[in-house]
Design a protein around this nucleic acid. Sequence first.
DNA 1: TATGAATGAGCCTTCATTCAT
DNA 2: GATGAATGAAGGCTCATTCAT
Lengths: 187, 187, 187, 187
Amino acid sequence: MDAALELFAEKGFSATRMADVAKKAGISKGTLYLYFDNKEAIFRSVVQEMILPQVDQHDAMIANYTGSAESLLRELLHGWWQAVMETKLSAIPKLIISESGNFPEMAEFFVKKVVLRSRQTFIKVIQYGIDKGEFKPCNPITAARLAIAPLVHASIWMHSLKAFDENHSDEDYLELHINLLLQGLSS
Amino acid sequence: MDAALELFAEKGFSATRMADVAKKAGISKGTLYLYFDNKEAIFRSVVQEMILPQVDQHDAMIANYTGSAESLLRELLHGWWQAVMETKLSAIPKLIISESGNFPEMAEFFVKKVVLRSRQTFIKVIQYGIDKGEFKPCNPITAARLAIAPLVHASIWMHSLKAFDENHSDEDYLELHINLLLQGLSS
Amino acid sequence: MDAALELFAEKGFSATRMADVAKKAGISKGTLYLYFDNKEAIFRSVVQEMILPQVDQHDAMIANYTGSAESLLRELLHGWWQAVMETKLSAIPKLIISESGNFPEMAEFFVKKVVLRSRQTFIKVIQYGIDKGEFKPCNPITAARLAIAPLVHASIWMHSLKAFDENHSDEDYLELHINLLLQGLSS
Amino acid sequence: MDAALELFAEKGFSATRMADVAKKAGISKGTLYLYFDNKEAIFRSVVQEMILPQVDQHDAMIANYTGSAESLLRELLHGWWQAVMETKLSAIPKLIISESGNFPEMAEFFVKKVVLRSRQTFIKVIQYGIDKGEFKPCNPITAARLAIAPLVHASIWMHSLKAFDENHSDEDYLELHINLLLQGLSS
DNA sequence: TATGAATGAGCCTTCATTCAT
DNA sequence: GATGAATGAAGGCTCATTCAT
């Protein structure tokens, strides 16, 4: 599945050949079919089995946090970054987005199970900040989308155009995003 | 080329069949080959011939603008949005990103001709704001990336997962981004 | 038809494209279809209309000849050589032979109308020589085949491997063939 | 390769479909591609791998022969006939000649490796006969060409027009050729 | 009469999938 | 369980043929 994730993310589903996956995994083509019914099954497994554990873990992380909205938001963003950008999960967003047209159920699954849940967490924190008076009033849904967008975008970039872009610091990127966001939100 | 852009953006290069392109264009398979050498040639044409005019136009738009950094940045972001999100250009970013692994030269072309040039414009405006004291000191490159990221992300989203996401207002999204960004930057 | 003959002889029927024929003839593809029903019709016309006049003319040449069998045979062979090797007819044998598998009726037509008739002429001359005591007894059919074989072979060679063979004199070839043949036949 | 040789010789390269080759070989289309890169590769293999062993064997046959030039020449011609006409090699000359326009390198390879080497053998024998006084002086190159031409021609005929010609004895043909040639050459 | 843009059947080739070993 | 040779459906591309101009 690691081999498949890497290849799917790099070349897309159609352009990835079973022979390539087998070769990268160090097994024979035939052996793939002992563990997966077909190419689509590999794709589904890759997406589902890599995402689900992560989602649960992420939820747990947030569950019973207390403190200022600012520090919570800061924490959340750092947590997301570490969980995604510094693991092989980083390849998933690009993959899902690229194949959303060919695998709409998978796209839907991803949105429902990952995007919306994750966004919900951010919404809660932002609402909490507004309620507390830390943040000025704004639509917390839109704010949540804007809080996450640069992170997701960074993961997509990392697996697509980063090689052709000049090498910029990801740390700067994350930190400046957090600072701009928090100052933007602060009342 | 419109037909091809739509299908490539939806399904990716490999999964798009020449027969589909022909059908969508209302011509026969053979006719495609009167105008393009092969499938790759269509892809390249789609990307290059749709992007280049836009880039030039965009450059012209910015050229001789004066006023406050804030209003300039506001203008720029609105301009980008209109030029991309409200035209068929909106499909290009997702397409390039999805196929970057299979068409690295095209990815490089896009980064050099579009991404970096566009970013440069934003860098200048931000630097101008910093110099004028409107904006607080920060790395203008990173700030430019963060100014654009939510926009590019919105275009990618629009052509991938938007259908599965609840329907949010794009106007709110843009406006809030601009406001958060400007307040974040302001000294 | 000249254009077609040349191309058919060079590349064969299948590998010759209508576009090539049209181009070589200096007309458009569509115009070809004003004069020929289809590709096969061109092929048939090329073969039939180039061969038939020649056959008749050749027959006439022999009709009422008198003299020694040797001089007659010599005459015949020279006549064949001039009529075939020094005109565009030279391409026909290679073409017919190459396409005999795909156009058996044409092959049969050629054998009946050309090969057998031509051979018959040689048979008569050889039989005449045997009867006169100039030539020693032998099977005149086989002898006729052997008299012609090197000539036909030369025409085939000319349109196939000659370019890769060292350049040998065709005149020497013809003269030595005639001399060897006549001394071989002479009693 | 046997299936391919037969079909190529019968229909030519272009007109032979991979499906036909596969069917005749009793395998599937796809399997062909496990053993050959493409159609051309089959063609090249057929020609090269069938010819080379034969050439070496033929050379060996001649190497250390002694005796009269006449009996040697007789031997050579019989040897050639058996090696070519009575094996599937007989299809090669027609094939090479038919495709010489489309595969010039292959034609050149054939001329260099087969035609010229074979001719050289005949040249030596004829020169030997001339030197010994058995044969009268003549150009041994041309004589060699004339010695071989009827044989090659017979192989071409066999795979093209023979079916439409009346059935003549090949033995008579060979024997008469040898006799005419030897009497023609003899001083 | 001449053109050449348009068509679509047909063929080469690829690759997901199967299965005997 | 693991293999890889074999399969054949599918798709890119060519080119003989048509037809509106």
